[in-house]
Write a protein that binds this DNA or RNA. Structure first.
Lengths: 203, 203
DNA sequence: AAACTAACGCTACATCAGTTGCGATTGGAG
DNA sequence: CTCCAATCGCAACTGATGTAGCGTTAGTTT
């Protein structure tokens, strides 16, 4: 109903086969090693079909990314904001360190830096993640652990940013201690009232 | 003497011409639009020569990156750690927002996510930047603004990370206020003693 | 169940990134 | 000044990526 005019049957099968093949190829060869021909061969779908429906490598990435965005992920609930924040950041870290999941996630980041469509898809993905993760901050505010003017999304961003920065910008290793430290830093800033929401009427 | 066996004369001219052409092409078309043929044509050097000496697009990037790493950049000295940190983060922000410099810098980040050689080059680049920037933290410690157990490099990382995170991971816009807030957050964390150097004997 | 048509498979082709072999230049050594 | 080797320019070639036309398959409609 939504995408094409023939949602059921072969088209759906083809779509699913290509998606799976894309994820598998990403896991094995990363984004730079992702080629339409290999995905076509692996999925059993013909090359031309992939080009027609997805347009090329960028389309494959965007599609796979939307798929990944649908899966919810476990937001920690340890009872304290410190534990929750650390849990989130560790989840990020371990996700990229995982030998199976890491390459796929990294491929998404790599793709988004190159292709505008993938960038939009990743933007939406992270917007959803931020929204889900903000829950731990809202709970902390409700418990009185944080001032209620705090910008929940910003706390999450500041907490996870150093991990991504090390991984994809500075290309440094990320230890568990680094992750905890980043979470603690965000928490300290939030407690200090630095990460407050913007006052109404600011451009 | 250092690189090849014929440092002077034509080889040097070729090298310089290609470097300039690479930077110009990066500014215009970004990393994904960087092609050896265009660089060759623009520099007046033959395609084959570029492939021989640089090996391909990755080599061009790495070379240009080393060149960029040599240029020192102005570390702020406002008299207070707050002003200095904000200055650094704003410098990062404005650098990527600059219509001329931004695309080139972004291209470096994009290249490093794809190519291991570029990743190493960028790693070294940021290691140098962190070292230079750490000076503002050391001055703050000397002034008594921060505890002397603070990890200077980590303060810098936490300060700039949110800007890079927004730009290259979440693909969100970055306002001046966002930059200031990130700097302030790092400072609050440093003051709270969260960003201390690792105790000796930690894996 | 017969007709209709969207979507797919296939072959052949076009295009472009990257390579190879050889001759021409050019910078440096004796 | 002369020779020599490193480097570059050139043209032809190879392989991979992406496209076009056309016949075939398989959902969908009546």
């Amino acid at each position: 109903m939504e995408t094409g005019k023939r949602p059921g049957g072969r088209s759906a099968r083809v779509r699913e086969a290509v998606r799976q093949a894309t994820l598998a190829e990403l896991a094995e060869h990363g984004y730079s090693g992702l080629t339409v021909e290999r995905v076509a061969e692996r999925s059993g779908v013909h090359k031309t079909t992939v080009y027609r429906r997805w347009g090329g490598v960028e389309g494959l990435i965007s599609d796979a990314l939307e798929l990944a965005g649908d899966e919810p992920w476990p937001v920690p609930d340890t009872g304290s904001i410190e534990g929750d924040l650390r849990g989130i950041v560790q989840l990020v870290r371990s996700g990229f360190a995982d030998p199976e999941l890491g390459p796929v996630s990294s491929a998404f980041v790599a793709a988004a830096v190159q292709d505008p469509a993938a960038a939009r898809a990743l933007h939406d993905f992270f917007a959803a993640r931020h929204e889900q993760s903000a829950e731990v901050v809202r709970r902390a505010v409700a418990r009185g652990e944080l001032p209620d003017v705090v910008d929940a999304g910003e706390v999450i961003r500041v907490a996870v940013a150093p991990v991504y920065y090390r991984l994809f910008v500075a290309h440094e290793p990320v230890t568990e201690r680094d992750a905890d430290r980043a979470a603690d830093a965000a928490l300290a800033a939030a407690r200090a009232g630095v990460l407050s929401a913007p006052p109404p009427g600011t451009a």
